[in-house]
């Protein structure tokens, strides 16, 4: 296991994730154009047909499973363009990925954020 994989709840965007997620992230990238955002909004499934996506990539988008998108090779700076298309913030997406309501996540951030203690290594969390 690489030393990065030992960090809990973290999916470093490395060579394997870039390789597996390339088409998926390029689909996300297309949403920086207003006409593409409109086409995606009007029929998400057909819009995504233009890219050779895996079933888990497609499903994660349709279900807005933000953590699933990352696990399927998505990079946060690319999947955030789906969030932007939905009018959602980075904070909304971060809360969803960490599995808590946005208000609870926001309170955690106001109180100084998620502590590093206990979050450095999977050996600490398992």
């Amino acid at each position: 296991m690489s030393e990065f994989e030992d960090i809990p709840g973290t999916y470093l965007f490395d060579k394997d994730r870039c390789h597996d997620g390339y088409q998926f992230n390029m689909f996300c990238m297309s949403l920086v154009k207003p006409k593409n955002r409109q086409a995606f909004r009007s029929d998400e499934a057909s819009y995504m047909d233009k890219w050779p996506l895996t079933e888990s990539q497609r499903r994660s988008v349709l279900e807005r499973d933000w953590l699933g998108m990352i696990k399927a090779g998505g990079n946060i700076y690319y999947t955030s363009k789906i969030a932007a298309t939905d009018g959602r913030s980075f904070q909304f997406v971060a809360a969803a990925m960490s599995g808590v309501p946005e208000e609870e996540y926001r309170s955690m951030m106001m109180a100084g954020g998620r502590p590093v203690e206990g979050n450095r290594s999977k050996r600490e969390t398992d």
Binding site: I7, P8, G9, T10, Y11, L67, I70, I76, S80, F90, V93, A94, A95, M97, S98, G99, Y105, M108, M109, G112, G113, R114, P115, V116, N119
Partner: peptide, 17 residues
Amino acid sequence: MSHQLHGERAGLINSEF
């Protein structure tokens, strides 16, 4: 400075670092 935007560890802050 310290921040993590993705994964279950999103929201990590390390002020000491």
